[in-house]
Every structure is written in C-alpha cells, then in structure tokens.
C-alpha cells in the first residue's frame, strides 16, 4: 500500500514518512502539486495523499482540484496536512474533494486516527 506525501518542506516529509513507514506503507514524495501529479501518474494506485496547503508551483488546494478532475484517481484519498487553520479554507478544500484535514502540529496518533477515519486498512499495526 502506498502513500504520497506532498509538502515543500523536506523536514516535514521526513516526519510524515517516518510515521507512515512504521505503519507499513510504502512512500513516495513530492515537493509541490505539479510534482505530486507526476508521481500520481507514475503510481496511479496510490491509496492516500497527505497534502500540505502552502506550496510553491501548485498549492494543495489546486492539487486536490486537479486530482478530483481525473477519474483515474477516484479512489485516492486526500488528507490535507497543513498549518492552515482557517475554517473557510478547510471547507473549501473539502468542497474541492479532500477527504480529511489534519492540522500541524500533530502526533502520530492523530495522523493514524485520520487514516482510520478515511477507511484505510493499515498494512501493519505497530
């Protein structure tokens, strides 16, 4: 099972990678939305994308819109993982097709809860 981590911060990608690899997921990474679309093209069966909001090139909201516009990625779950705390923006992301929202800072347990909420089966429970 594969997760795509989309964040312009290498440090944040490392933190997220560490958590989801512990759960048994394979991980691919992207530094912004355009790169993430390319990764999805290479790995179309990716089950979940963890998506930051503020990124250069293509932000998280535009990425969500682009993914939802492509029927090929209909089954891919999208979780916004972001410092954005504005409820209006959260609503906009959900309207655009995001499945869940996780605010930074977060713990491994909080991320795990969100993955459960979107109905993800863990490959391995640590």
């Amino acid at each position: 099972m594969q997760i795509l981590i989309v964040d312009d911060s290498t440090a944040m990608r490392k933190i997220l990678r560490r958590i989801v690899e512990t759960l048994g997921f394979k991980v691919v990474e992207a530094g912004h939305g355009i790169e993430a679309m390319q990764q999805l093209g290479s790995f179309p069966t990716t089950e979940v994308a963890l998506v930051d909001w503020n990124m250069p090139e293509m932000n998280g909201l535009d990425f969500v819109k682009a993914v939802r516009a492509n029927p090929l990625y209909e089954q891919t779950k999208l979780v916004m993982v972001t410092s954005e705390t504005d409820p209006t923006k959260m609503a906009r992301a959900m309207m655009a097709g995001a499945d869940e929202f996780l605010m930074k800072p977060f713990t491994a347990e909080m991320l795990l809860d969100k993955l459960h909420l979107i109905g993800l089966t863990m490959p391995r429970v640590c």
């Binding site: 410092s83 705390t85 800072p105």
Partner: peptide, 8 residues
C-alpha cells in the same frame, strides 16, 4: 510556517 499558521 507552523507557528505562523497557528497564529493566523
């Protein structure tokens, strides 16, 4: 970024 987002 995280502090700024939470301040906002």
């Amino acid at each position: 970024n995280m502090i700024g987002g939470n301040v906002k």
